[in-house]
Each structure stands twice: as C-alpha cells, then as structure tokens.
Write a protein that binds this DNA or RNA. Sequence first.
DNA 1: CTCACTGTAATACCATACATTACAATGAGA
DNA 2: TCTCATTGTAATGTATGGTATTACAGTGAG
Lengths: 140, 140
Amino acid sequence: MQFSFRMPVAVHIMLCIAKFDGVFKTTSTFLASSVNVNPVIIRKTLGQLKAAGLVEVAAVVGGAKLTKAPQDITLQDVFQAVEEDEDLFHIQDNPNPQCPVGRNIHRVLGSRLSMVKSHMLDDFSRITLADLLEDIPDNE
Amino acid sequence: MQFSFRMPVAVHIMLCIAKFDGVFKTTSTFLASSVNVNPVIIRKTLGQLKAAGLVEVAAVVGGAKLTKAPQDITLQDVFQAVEEDEDLFHIQDNPNPQCPVGRNIHRVLGSRLSMVKSHMLDDFSRITLADLLEDIPDNE
DNA sequence: CTCACTGTAATACCATACATTACAATGAGA
DNA sequence: TCTCATTGTAATGTATGGTATTACAGTGAG
C-alpha cells in the first residue's frame, strides 16, 4: 500500500514552475514532458493546486506561476491540495458491537492513528519547496 | 488515498487474542465475527503475523496466542508484519533526464519522504498493544 | 474414524488510479 | 476577423489491488 503519484507529481510541477520562471512558458505539455505523464494529468493537478491557491494558471495564454515564494510553500500545502482529507488507515466499518474489542476499536485505535497522521502533516509542514530547490543543481 | 484494512484488522485480531486468552478459543471464525470480515481474511492475516513471529497458531486444534506480552508488541511490529516494506509515496519512475528537476526529483523528494515514513514508524513503535488494551473496558 | 480447524488456491467483484482521446471555450496575435 | 495554442473537462479504457467467497486438502485431538 502506498499513496498515489499525485503528491509527488504536484511537487514536481511546482518545482519546475519555480525553476523555469521567466525562462520557459510552463504549459501543461511542457510540464508533462518533464514529469513524463499525460498532459491531462498535469492539468488536473494544476487545477487542484489552483483551487488551493498555490498557483495561478494563465487560462488561454498558457503557463503557470506560484502565488507565493518557494520558501512559503510547504509539502503540507501541496499534500492537502491534492489528497482527500481522510484517515490514514481504514478501520472496518461494522465491527461486532457485542465484542468489547469490536465496539471500542474505532475509538481506541482511531485516536492513535489520527495522531500519527497529524505528526506526518507536521513533518510535511517543515519541508518547503525552497528546501528542495536548493538541492537541485542548474546543470549536471 | 489511504492504507487498506490490513493493519487495523491485524491489531483488532491481536487485541482479541490478548483479551480472550484463556476464556474463548480464538479461532479464525471467532475472530472474523468480531472484526466482521471473512474468516479467510483472518487466516491470511494470522499467517502474516505468524511469519513475523508475533503469534502462534494452533494448526489443527484452532486458536491463536501472542508470543510476547502486549506491552512488548508495538504497532510498528504489526505494521511491518502486514504491509510491504516500500516507500510511502510513489514517485514517477521515468522522469525526463534532460530536465534538471526530472533528473533530481527522486533523490531530492525521495530522501525527504523516506524520512517522513521513518518518523511514522517511530510513532508506531511507541504505541503498544497494552496501551490499547488499557482503553478497552471489559463491559459496557 | 470423525470432525473442527487451518492453510491455501481459485475466482469474482469492485473501487480507484492512471492513460488517452476528444472537444468546447477563449483570447492573444497576425 | 481569423487562426491557433492552450486550458478545462468529460468520457472511456485499462490495469492493479483489495476484499469477499467458495472449495478443498491436510491434520491431529478425542
């Protein structure tokens, strides 16, 4: 089990937008060729990022821009823009209410797991796009 | 996106085994009725837990027992018993090597994400079955 | 010898992610 | 005004993986 491509793709896109700002027009086709996925995937992802207020997309001209400086955008922002706000784990919906374990499992395990998820989000909130950009050399 | 039932089911099973030790014979059918899934799911999960050395299953007689005390079994043990050891996120396999972002994304993003995953495992390692059992009353 | 139980294979079904094609809408630029 | 690249979105296809279910061989206690 693992998360889908979505968050990594979104991060990749935003890094490209930041990196090529003013140099290339970052259209969905251009971004798609860097990530190596279909341009439609890029457009959908850009749509989610736009809805979250992280990017602006030039509707007809083409190209996208970040709305904030890379050091002000965290992986948490990106994660929440493209992933559902749901529990990390799926606990069986209808455990047996006649069993003491069954009728308490949601409360007992769920509370711990949501704590783990919030720690994960905390981790994400401490990683900015600028951190990642620093690690990407301009040329080989 | 979220993880499957597997880990929560495994935890549920182990809590039942601990709770009903010496009271009921914890067969796969018995456990299945508490979790409310098919007994085959329970047997597969028990097989994984057995392979990880966390439980012993009485092959013919029926029933399972923990191999360690509940305070010595952590959610990390259970998680690793039932989940693949893989990255938390899936980064596109073939990004464009001609793009500076494309040829560095795995290293730059992957290292951060594996750190996040190891923090998650640390969290799991601090939660024991005994912690959960304490929160489950015997009767309503 | 019987029987309850485990272990496992086979199969079906369903949800979801990703890929791809198609096309309407739009405004910049010729 | 016309062309054209581009976005946004719908529709569809395909593959993967998780869960459900049936079936059955193997096994040792009683």
